[in-house]
Amino acid sequence: MTKVVILDGDGKTLSALIGPTGPEHRRLANKVMADALARANLAFSEISYVVATGYGRINVPFADRQITELTCHAKGIASLFPAVRTAIDIGGQDAKGLKIRNGKLVDFVMNDRCAAGTGRFLDVLVGTLGLRIDELGEISLKATQKLPISSVCTVFAQMEIMACLSEGTPLPDIVAGLHDAIANRVVKMIKKLKIEPDVVFTGGVAKNIGVVNALQETLGLNVSVPAEPLLTGALGAALLGRELALKALAEGKPVHEKELRLDEPTFFKVK
């Protein structure tokens, strides 16, 4: 997904948008930005500063600056939950643990090499279950027991699920088992950060109440989820952009180091 958050000078949200990200996403950042501007009834020339973040941040030619998604997430989450010390972000491609102190990222851990423990794990397995991704959370609440499912490998988990379906295991028990598998894997990974409350959970998977419950149970701690858990990174980017623009103004320096135009990246064009 491509997300945009536009803030005013006081930090109030003027526009927040979550758009689809397809194979053409690298060409489309300017279009998503245009949609967000239209919603806020703003022209691009009225934007003081643009921070791009996330995997596609290098494909945003109209950004003043690129900042990593971890720093932006930390900023965005801390603005919503000032007491946060540990954040867990599970998205479609990766899972991250963030150690946050006074609103700043001080340590992090991310999955590598394997998508088990990320949203992709659920994406792949809903097909086997014949369900939609947004149904999983509610279905898991009906479970009478949690089926132990491998969290090591998505393909192994798929085979286990097929075997369980053949044996007539109820769907809620399988789904609850999947949520447990994700929670176990992610908690094991982020334990390195010495988990401390308050814990905040973000990313697309945070919309799944089943995974939220599984995380709380595994951690033995209460887990807070923002109203819109997909937007914390974009919110953090906007907050950092606002800070940078205000700092430049306070120091009497030019806000922009280059002229910004709402164009698509030129490096994809065939000469």
Partner: peptide, 20 residues
Amino acid sequence: FDYADTMRKAVVLEEMMDHY
């Protein structure tokens, strides 16, 4: 060894090095 992943995380480390 995951080259791209290491480079991606290296950029985050830079932000942490600035902080520390």
